[in-house]
Amino acid sequence: MERTISKQRLKEVYVWELPVRFYHWINALCIVVLAITGYIIGRPPAFQSATEASYGYWFGTVRFIHFVTAFVFFFNFVMRIYWGFVGNKYARWYNFIPLKKWQWKEIICVIKVDILQIKDRPVLGVGHNSLASLTYFFTFLAFVLQCFTGFGIYAAMSESWLPNLFSWIVPLLGGDFMARQIHHILMWFFILFGIVHVYLVFYHDYIERTGVTSSMIGGWKFVEGDDADMDGNERIRSCNQK
């Protein structure tokens, strides 16, 4: 197949710094472990009977793994928030909250091009596009809620100060029952997000070929020379051309 695209015009951009990449994979691993152990806690399989309690502790172990992973997840998240203030321009916090008009325009544009597929011109930001950023903002909120409810219910079984920082959340929700309920429902948000997230990464690589999949490993993305230098407003204009 012939290509009109010439290699010379491709530029490599270092997008995801090492802390961002570490954060991403630790976070992904934690969420998988937390969702699996969490689901088991909420709906334990009863595969044992005709035995005595003194012979086993598997359910306690599942809970232990959930709690240890929860602490890793929490501190990793705290690190990412810090990096949102000191990292490079693709990692900064303002990417994730659409406060500017062009970000909203880009969201509409992305919906037309990538979701509904009624427009052809892809949106070529170097970092996240605005719709992706907004989605990540929602996942950050879900992280916060999950940590609040999780540590809130954990506080009842812990003397240490960190979980007890969150103990106020439980009376606010009316009791442990509601906190656990919300905690359980939010698990589904993470599962649905995970499915869509992985699919969309593949989709973008499939269509745009910027190396987005491997960018979270090595940090580099391929962008065409002039695309890399465009600011948000110029991108919107080019999106609306067709």
Binding site: A46, F47, Q48, S49, T51, G56, F59
Partner: peptide, 11 residues
């Protein structure tokens, strides 16, 4: 409680 930790549940 020991039954809970051992994953032994009434069905």
């Amino acid at each position: 409680r020991p039954n809970y930790d051992a994953g032994l549940f009434v069905q």
